[in-house]
Design a binder for these strands. Sequence first.
DNA 1: CAACATATGTGCGATAATGCACAAATGGAT
DNA 2: ATCCATTTGTGCATTATCGCACATATGTTG
Lengths: 287, 287
Amino acid sequence: MDWQDLRHFAILARTGSLSAAARELDVDHATVGRRVGALEHALGLRLVDRLPRRVLLTEEGRAVASLVASMEQTAQLIERRARGAGAAAAATVRISAPPAVAARLVAPHVAEFHRDHPAITLILSGATEMAALDRGEADLALRLSRPTDPDLIVSRIGVMHFGLYATAEQAALPAQHWRFIAYDKKLDHVPQQVWLKSLLAGRPVVFQASDLFGQQEAARAGMGAAVLPRFIGDADPALVRLPTASEPPARDLWLATYPDLKRSPALRRVMDFLGRIVARACPKRGG
Amino acid sequence: MDWQDLRHFAILARTGSLSAAARELDVDHATVGRRVGALEHALGLRLVDRLPRRVLLTEEGRAVASLVASMEQTAQLIERRARGAGAAAAATVRISAPPAVAARLVAPHVAEFHRDHPAITLILSGATEMAALDRGEADLALRLSRPTDPDLIVSRIGVMHFGLYATAEQAALPAQHWRFIAYDKKLDHVPQQVWLKSLLAGRPVVFQASDLFGQQEAARAGMGAAVLPRFIGDADPALVRLPTASEPPARDLWLATYPDLKRSPALRRVMDFLGRIVARACPKRGG
DNA sequence: CAACATATGTGCGATAATGCACAAATGGAT
DNA sequence: ATCCATTTGTGCATTATCGCACATATGTTG
């Protein structure tokens, strides 16, 4: 007797129709019908009378349904216990992410994570090298380039979109008077920098900063226009997004960890949390 | 969460190894491994530590195992209740079979059936027409020709083998002195009769009977050789089987009933019983 | 009374699960 | 110390299951 057949029957007994049970189980109504038929065959009993638009339980069906309901309660207990086992586990999880992502994307949400998982301590550090995982300095790494180490479990969890931002005052100037803020030369290969250079059209870079925060602060001070991730630029009330002649770049966000670490319930909770906030701030589709 | 994964885990928890659980479930050890792995993934927990020659439950595994044990008990209760529902059902089941099959194949075993299912009353009648089902005179029909009514559920449950039988005294006579016992002319189309006629080679039919019993009694009385089903001829100590120039015929045994009748637990019990005794007396292979 | 939404039933192709065969490792027996 | 029986793990071919599309029927609504 296949217990999954019992599960389908339990849901059918509760909902009264193959279609409703199918929706709850997220399978096809045909599957529910076949599964319950298989159960009837295995038990040698008729559990349901099939009518054109609903099913009725037979007397035997009601008897089995009351037994299988206790199995359903136990299964739900197992699932709750599994969730509890994860949440209750005291653990420390160390996250490494590019500084801007760490400070502006992750850090603002750690309070809500802590509220839901008080026993898990997060340690967040800003870094861009993959070595953070290798050196044992982090359990999870968020990165803008796909990690290539074959021993890592890697998943693409979002897309970072960019825009060009300045104060409203700067934005009101004629476009040929716009000034720009860039990274220094060692980051000339970075897609955002490449894009910024393509926009210059003879207009000057008046400030160079080695990190995004400096660029953002300079833009807020009216120095000029800077390329910022949308989740930063759109959230800053002092800045507006400028129109641009070409589409801004988009960069995938990757999450990497080691397989044995992934077995840890605490780490999985953190991965789920990062997946959710990245999905909100950096959706895979559209900007 | 797939309840069948839970079932595999329940057995693994009880037996301590993938191989032992596989034997109990009658599946491959690889299947048990995959199923338990799927459960671990669904729950986000590690339930077992896999060692080279055994598995150990983790602390979480022990917790889940104690919960799933109650599901196992409930499932066993459901199965026992299903068997009880079948066995306890008071019912009358009417069987129609060719007379020889009814009297010599089925009747000798009804005592054992009754012992196992005291609440089911069997009514056995000898008939060869399919109309017995149509007229509502029988619930189950055993037949030597495949029933063709599309509304019937039909299954081939055995093969009746035949032989030529006579007393040892008759058998000791020179073959050219052998005499034969046949059906009367109206059964000339029946395969056994066709075969018998093919064996005559100028030797006489000295007795004709309209039924098998008369033929068997005449053969026992030394009148000559008769074609009998093996399960009759081999079981008669007064008769021996004669060598023949050609292979005897074999006829399929078919069991037929109506679909709604088949849902009856009592009828299924009887069908199982008939299937077993026919399989023993008239196996599908070899003679 | 007609139309429509939703139910169950079924055949078939695609996908997932299983069994099989093999490899590697281990613990007990000799 | 060696050998053997039995374990777990894995790739691949085969088989079973599922989803999909369609048919039919029905109950509710306009």
